[in-house]
């Protein structure tokens, strides 16, 4: 058992690549600013009703602003999550014709956007005051910074890529590695030693689970130190969900290794299984834009469960109890995949 473990640990390059590849993806995508679209999202809390309507309408006309109306608690929560750059509070006492001031809460981590938003708001108010006859007094905008967690694309991407690389390692690592050992006669050479086949499988699984843990650790640390990843979850939960996912995909890898005789047979099968998941499980792009029935299908992908689970833990600090649907989904997949693997797997 220990001896078989060593076989894998001595494949230094392989280990290096399993760790480096997902990092490479993160570096590649991390520097692309998908979320820097140049619009300022403003939450408007209108407690003044019709009196403030012309003002709100005018704000909506401004193309640089994305205006969302809501109640006070809701909008401030969104500001806290980083979903708004600023939130303007229009109190019930608001009267556009009399001298008044407005308070806006702004996102402290996005000073530029907040400043721009404040400037535009002030201008819209000034214009409205000016158009009145007689011209009304100027309404002054006060701003107050609020601490926010600004989730960015990297926060979405990193747990996804992490999940994807767990899938790749399971399906491709096991299937290719095993078929190659089989084809090159290395397995036969091992069978004439007293090493037990079960130990060999166990070592394969143990080795890859250790790699999964290293992967999670490295990716999260790199994310936090180099990309301002807003990691608030627990490593323990991440390890647990990651391993559950890994077992699902390892089993798939063993099933593939069982039915394939050469690398040429493994490659298309492995791709048919992994590509749709890679593209549709919400790894690189949110699933919210998928058409209804595709969305429903992808709900049941094992990678969707894994990615949603990992993301929930890492970014929203979800507890395992909150992730019951994901854990249940992975658990069912785990049973199915292991059953199929046991049925399909062949040594020769």
């Amino acid at each position: 058992m220990i001896a078989s473990l060593k076989i894998f640990f001595r494949q230094r390059e392989a280990i290096l690549w399993t760790l480096l590849f997902p990092l490479f993806m993160i570096f590649l995508f991390g520097f692309v600013k998908f979320d820097g679209l140049g619009r300022v999202t403003v939450g408007v809390v209108n407690d003044a009703g019709g009196k403030a309507a012309p003002f709100v309408e005018a704000l909506k006309e401004v193309r640089t602003l994305k205006v969302i109306e809501g109640n006070r608690t809701e909008e401030l929560t969104q500001l806290g999550k980083g979903e708004r750059e600023m939130v303007v509070i229009i109190p019930a006492s608001f009267d556009p014709s009399s001298n008044d001031s407005l308070l806006a809460y702004v996102n402290d981590e996005k000073p530029q956007e907040a400043q721009l938003g404040a400037l535009i708001l002030q201008r819209v108010m000034d214009e409205q005051a000016f158009r009145r006859s007689p011209p009304a007094n100027r309404i002054v905008l006060w701003t107050q910074p609020v601490k926010s967690r600004n989730l960015t694309y990297i926060d979405f991407l990193l747990p996804g890529v992490l999940s994807m690389s767990i899938m790749q390692m399971g399906i491709f690592g096991v299937a290719f590695g095993f078929v190659s050992l089989k084809k090159r006669g290395i397995l036969r050479r091992l069978w004439v030693t007293p090493m037990k086949p079960d130990d060999f499988i166990l070592a394969q699984v143990a080795f890859r689970l250790i790699i999964v843990m290293m992967q999670i650790l490295v990716m999260i640390l790199v994310g936090v130190y180099f990309f301002d990843l807003h990691f608030i979850g627990s490593f323990g939960s991440l390890f647990l969900v990651g391993m559950l996912g890994a077992v699902v995909f390892l089993a798939m890898g063993f099933a593939l290794a069982g039915i394939s005789k050469s690398e040429d047979q493994v490659a298309p099968l492995a791709n048919i299984i992994s590509l749709p998941m890679m593209l549709l499980s919400g790894i690189f792009f949110s699933r919210s834009n998928l058409p209804g029935f595709v969305h429903t299908i992808t709900d049941f992908f094992p990678l969707t469960y894994l990615a949603d689970g990992m993301r929930g833990i890492a970014i929203d600090g979800a507890t395992l109890a909150q992730l019951t649907p994901q854990l249940l989904g992975l658990g069912i997949w785990c049973i199915v995949a292991c059953a199929v693997a046991v049925k399909m797997f062949r040594w020769e």
């Binding site: 076989i7 001595r10 494949q11 230094r12 006669g185 290395i186 036969r188 050479r189 004439v192």
Partner: peptide, 9 residues
């Protein structure tokens, strides 16, 4: 064995 290879690396 007739055609067995060994682990790389």
């Amino acid at each position: 064995l007739q055609s067995s290879s060994f682990f790389d690396k």
